[in-house]
C-alpha cells in the first residue's frame, strides 16, 4: 500500500492545481487531453485512474471472500485468466450463467461464483476498481462488440428499443438528447453523439476529472436517468446491459482509450 499512498499524495497536489489553465477548449475531447497532459506534468506521470487500476489489481489478485480465492480464474470471454482486450468484446453471452453480461456484472458474477460472496456483500467501489484494472489491460485495443449469438441479438434489439423509449414526467429518452440534439449544450458538456462518434463508448470506464469520480458505463447511464428526475435501473441489471450492448456495438472498430479520462 505504500506506493498507493505516495501516488495519492502526489495526485492530491496535482488535482488541486488543475483547471487553472487559461482558455478552455470548446471540444471536450481536446479539453480533456489538455487537462490530462497538465495533470501528468504536475503529478510526475500518474493519473488518478492509475490509483483505481492499482487498487483493482490488488483486489483482483488477493484471495478473498468465503472461498478465499482470487479472481484470476475469472473468464471474461477469452478464457479463464485472459484479460487482454476483453473490454472491447463486452457485453457478450456467457455459457456458464446463460446471460449476456457486461464488465460490471461479469466481475460481480465471479465475485459470487469464485469467491463465494453473497450479492448483498459486494461493494460497488470494489467492482469499479476491478473494472478499472481490467480496462487498463484493454487500452489501445480495438472495440469489437458484435451481437452474433441469438441472446445477444435479442438483447441488442431490446437495448435499441429502450434507447428510443420516452417516459416519465419529463418525457425522458436517450435519443432526444443524444440523437436529435447532438453537440448542443444544456450545461458545460455538449450532448455526445452516441450513435455516430465511436470514441464515446470506447472510453468507459472513465475517470471524470471535474468531479473526481471513477465511473463505469453503468454509472453514466444511471446518471443520465437521474438528471431527468427518473429512477435509475439497478446496478448489474438487464436494462443497463442492454443499453450498453447497443451503444458499444456502435463503437465497433474504435481504438479504446482506457481507462478514459474525461470531464
Amino acid at each position: 500500500m505504500g506506493r498507493f499512498w505516495r501516488l495519492l499524495a502526489a495526485l492530491a497536489l496535482a488535482l488541486g492545481a488543475l483547471g487553472a489553465s487559461a482558455q478552455e477548449e470548446d471540444d471536450p475531447v481536446k479539453e480533456a487531453e489538455k487537462q490530462k497532459k497538465q495533470l501528468l506534468e504536475q503529478s510526475g506521470g500518474i493519473l488518478p485512474s492509475d490509483l483505481y487500476v492499482q487498487q483493482g489489481e490488488e483486489l483482483f489478485k488477493a484471495k478473498r471472500g468465503p472461498k478465499q480465492a482470487s479472481l484470476e480464474a475469472c473468464d471474461f470471454g477469452r478464457g479463464p485468466g485472459r484479460l487482454e482486450g476483453v473490454v472491447g468484446r463486452l457485453p457478450r453471452y456467457f455459457f456458464d450463467t446463460r446471460r449476456v453480461e457486461d464488465l460490471d456484472s461479469r466481475i460481480r458474477t465471479c465475485m459470487i461464483r469464485l469467491q463465494g460472496f453473497r450479492p448483498e456483500e459486494i461493494r460497488r467501489s470494489e467492482v469499479v476498481a476491478i473494472a478499472f484494472y481490467i480496462a487498463s489491460l484493454s487500452n489501445e485495443q480495438t472495440m469489437y462488440v458484435r451481437p452474433l449469438m441469438p441472446q445477444e441479438k435479442k438483447l441488442y434489439e431490446l437495448g435499441e428499443k429502450l434507447f428510443y423509449l420516452r417516459a416519465g414526467p419529463r418525457d425522458m429518452g436517450c435519443a432526444s438528447c443524444h440523437v436529435t440534439y447532438v453537440g448542443r449544450r444544456a450545461g458545460v458538456l455538449p450532448y455526445s453523439d452516441l450513435l455516430g462518434d465511436k470514441r464515446v463508448a470506447s472510453h468507459w470506464p472513465a475517470f471524470r476529472y471535474s468531479n473526481d469520480q471513477a465511473w463505469t458505463m453503468a454509472d453514466r447511464i444511471r446518471a443520465c436517468y437521474a438528471n431527468l428526475g427518473m429512477p435509475a435501473p439497478d446496478f448489474y441489471s438487464e436494462p443497463i446491459i442492454a443499453l450498453t450492448l447497443f451503444m458499444n456495438a456502435q463503437a465497433r472498430g474504435a481504438r479504446m482509450d482506457l481507462p478514459g479520462f474525461i470531464r
Binding site: 435479442k154 438483447l155 431490446l158 428499443k161 429502450l162 423509449l165 420516452r166 417516459a167 416519465g168 436517468y225 427518473m230 429512477p231 435509475a232 435501473p233 439497478d234 441489471s237 438487464e238 436494462p239 443497463i240 442492454a242
Partner: peptide, 23 residues
C-alpha cells in the same frame, strides 16, 4: 412496450419499472 421489453424493464427494479411501464 412489448411483453419482452416489459420483462427487460422489470429487471431494472421496481422504481424504474413503475415509471417506464406507465408510458
Amino acid at each position: 412496450i412489448t411483453p419482452e421489453l416489459q420483462r427487460l424493464i422489470q429487471a431494472g427494479g421496481q422504481n424504474y419499472a413503475n415509471v417506464l411501464l406507465r408510458q
